[in-house]
């Protein structure tokens, strides 16, 4: 290994060390997974999308939309679909979707009202809230629970927490 490469490697190491040790917001902390070995699993063939509606962003969807009526709804944090390899097959299939970011999105009071309307007016069957493990993402579950507490109907709510490497850290009914 040449000196310059050694130096580069050393600098990269320092950068990684800094990005991990300096703390700060875990939701925005830099991490690089590119050098990890390839995971087992098939990369061949294509999989159909399981999305059965448009739009999907929580500000854009309407609780009166036909695809929400009596549906099992998945409320996913924006980053979830990019993190879970088999998101469509394992989590989106059979569900109607809304996505949101509890950290960056504005007017989250509207989100709460919409979720309450989904429960009371669209009479959704269940609500699954899928978030990342970073602390700020917990806000989405809290928002959904506050909306459910305001609703007249009671429905089962499930929380699924996704690790940064796409693993499922927990899956439980609230």
């Amino acid at each position: 290994m040449s000196n310059s490469k050694d130096q580069q490697h050393h600098l990269e190491g320092e950068e990684n060390k800094q990005s991990h040790s300096m703390g700060g917001c875990p939701g925005s902390r830099m991490m690089d997974f590119s050098k990890t070995e390839e995971k087992p699993g098939s990369s061949e063939g294509t999989r159909p999308s399981q999305l059965r509606q448009w739009p999907i962003q929580l500000h854009l969807v309407g609780p009166s939309a036909p695809y929400f009526q009596n549906a099992d709804v998945l409320l996913a944090a924006d980053c979830v679909a990019f993190t879970v390899g088999d998101f469509h097959k394992d989590y989106l299939a059979g569900k109607s979707l809304a996505i949101a970011c509890p950290k960056l999105d504005e007017d989250q009071d509207v989100y709460q009202e919409k979720i309450t309307a989904l429960i009371d007016d669209a009479k959704i069957n269940t609500l699954t809230v899928m978030t990342m493990e970073v602390p700020c993402c917990g806000g989405l579950l809290a928002l959904a629970q506050a909306a459910a507490a305001k609703a007249k109907r009671k429905i089962p709510i499930k929380s699924i927490v996704v690790g940064l490497r796409g693993t499922i850290n927990s899956e439980e009914w609230c």
Partner: peptide, 13 residues
């Protein structure tokens, strides 16, 4: 399934 859990909960209600 999630769907059945929702249905059953709704029938209990």
């Amino acid at each position: 399934t999630t769907k059945q859990i929702g249905e059953m909960f709704s029938r209990f209600n």
